[in-house]
Amino acid sequence: MVGVGNPMRGDDGAGHAVVDELRRLAPAGVDLTTASGDAAELIESWSSAEHVIVVDASASGQPAGTVSHFDAVHEPVPARMRGSSSHGLGVGEAVELARAVGRLPARLEVYALEGRDFSSGAALSAEVLRAARALARGLAGSLSPTALDG
C-alpha cells in the first residue's frame, strides 16, 4: 500500500494521510509505505509485491474529496492522472512504464482523491481529510491478509 504525494503541498498530501490513518487501522502483514511519486521509485516499491494499492491526489475538476478508483492492470491510467507531477514522471507514467516493460504487479489498484488546494505549506482541505479518513477505514476492512489473497 503506497501513499503518494508531497504533504508539504496541501492536498497533495492525501496519499500520505491515508497511509498515516492505516498505520493505526491496518492489520499486521500489510506493508505500508509512502513515496514522493517518482516513477522509478514507485516501480521499485512494488517489484516484490503481488497486490499493490496506490493512493494519490488528483486535480481533475471534480469536487474536492471525490474518490476515484481504477484497476490499473486491466485499464489504462486515465489521462487526468498523467503529467500532473511537477517532476515529469508520476503515478500515471509509472503504471504505463511498468506495463510496457512487464513490471506491473498481479493486482494494482489506484485510488485518486480529488484535491482543491495544492499550495506550498497548506494543510489538507477539510473535504480531503474527511475523504482520506473514510478511505482508510474502508481499506482497513479489506486489507486482511485473507482478503488480499482473494
Binding site: 522509478a40 512504464l97 510496457a100 513490471r103
Partner: peptide
C-alpha cells in the same frame, strides 16, 4: 514524445534505466 511512448518500442531502454537508477538509489 515521452519515455512511455519510447517504452512501447524500446522496453529494454527503460529496463536499463530503472536498473541503473536502482544502483544509484
Amino acid at each position: 514524445e515521452s519515455a512511455i511512448h519510447m517504452a512501447q518500442d524500446h522496453p529494454e531502454v527503460v529496463q536499463t534505466a530503472l536498473k541503473l537508477k536502482k544502483v544509484g538509489n
